[in-house]
């Protein structure tokens, strides 16, 4: 899931409106600021009775539901385009599909580092792609083997793509639960 940019401002505005509505009800009950006693419901009723009000309400309903639906759908993950343009010479141009090298990077990490169940995620980065590999560590692992494996993977990618078209990042998570372990652990 992605986090749309509208999340923070829109949630803050809705939060303020809810807080104001709640404060008005509290003032109505305990008469703290005397706001409610000055409220003239006659004007509100007159506005609601006006002929234009149902149309305005309908337009507001359409606008609000369109915004809410867009807001909900904006967080669905989108597939990043895998194509990366490699440095070209003259009229020739080579596009690489980053999707083709991701399984290889996953295998390399699983083979060289004390980790299992490597998953990957691609995202677009200015002028290239970031491949994020995520794996569960083997609890018997030592730090040096993790650092070396990540270092050699980064080095290999950097050698293959010196202009930074593909960048790799390794995230190491806690081991999988004992129950899910494929081979029994022997002490």
């Amino acid at each position: 899931m992605t986090t749309p940019k509208a999340d923070r401002p829109a949630t803050a505005v809705i939060g303020l409106l809810l807080l104001a509505a709640g404060a008005a009800v509290v003032d109505w009950r305990w008469d703290l600021a005397g706001m409610w006693t000055r409220l003239d419901t006659g004007e509100v009723d007159a506005a609601v009775d006006a002929g234009w009000f149902p149309w305005v309400a309908l337009a507001a309903a359409v606008a609000l539901s369109a915004f809410a639906l867009w807001w909900l759908l904006a967080r669905l993950p989108r597939r990043a385009d895998g194509r990366v343009a490699l440095a070209s010479s003259g009229s020739d141009r080579i596009d690489l599909d980053a999707r083709s090298i991701v399984p290889r990077l996953r295998d390399d990490l699983e083979r060289s580092a004390p980790v299992d169940r490597v998953t990957s995620r691609r995202s677009e980065l200015r002028g290239g792609q970031l491949v994020q590999l995520r794996a569960n560590v083997d609890p018997r692992a030592d730090a040096a083997s993790l650092v070396n494996a990540a270092g050699s993977l980064t080095e290999a990618v950097r050698t293959a793509f010196p202009d930074g078209e593909i960048t790799v990042r390794v995230l190491v998570d806690e081991p999988r639960r004992e129950r899910a372990r494929r081979t029994p652990r022997v002490h």
């Binding site: 999340d7 949630t11 309903a61």
Partner: peptide, 24 residues
């Protein structure tokens, strides 16, 4: 955290839109 609450906020907006549409 706001990412989860935003879903709730969007559903509240849909609820408000339903009340306005029912009035119309």
């Amino acid at each position: 955290v706001v990412s989860t609450l935003a879903v709730l906020a969007a559903l509240l907006l849909i609820g408000l839109a339903a009340v306005l549409a029912q009035h119309a």
